[in-house]
Amino acid sequence: MIPLSYYLILSGIMFLTGVIGVLLRRNIIIILLSVELMLNATNINFVAFSQYFHNVAGQVFVFFTLTVAAAEVAVGLAIIIALYRAKSTINIDEFQLLKW
């Protein structure tokens, strides 16, 4: 039996990698990929807890996370494509119209 904390550490690493990716990278695609990392870390948590509790709810939550991830990706990529059409770049730093 793998201790639960192993899973937590793994998901923590994944999550933080994702966070760092969001903060570090400028390509919007990579940023979205990093967000996917974060969501996957969450999923690992859910599944690990679910197994640990013998409580199937955690797996159901993963389901919802998947749904949300899919929805976000659909909208996000649509935005990116529309933006690319308008500006021919998806580098966040080149969005100069609206300054940070």
Partner: peptide, 25 residues
């Protein structure tokens, strides 16, 4: 605007969700 909103929105909901997963635990 939409893109920025989206990126940060997704980021924040990721963080939120991770917190939720810990609380579920």
């Amino acid at each position: 605007a939409s893109a920025k909103y989206f990126v940060l929105g997704a980021f924040s909901s990721g963080i939120l969700l991770y917190g939720i997963s810990l609380l579920y635990g």
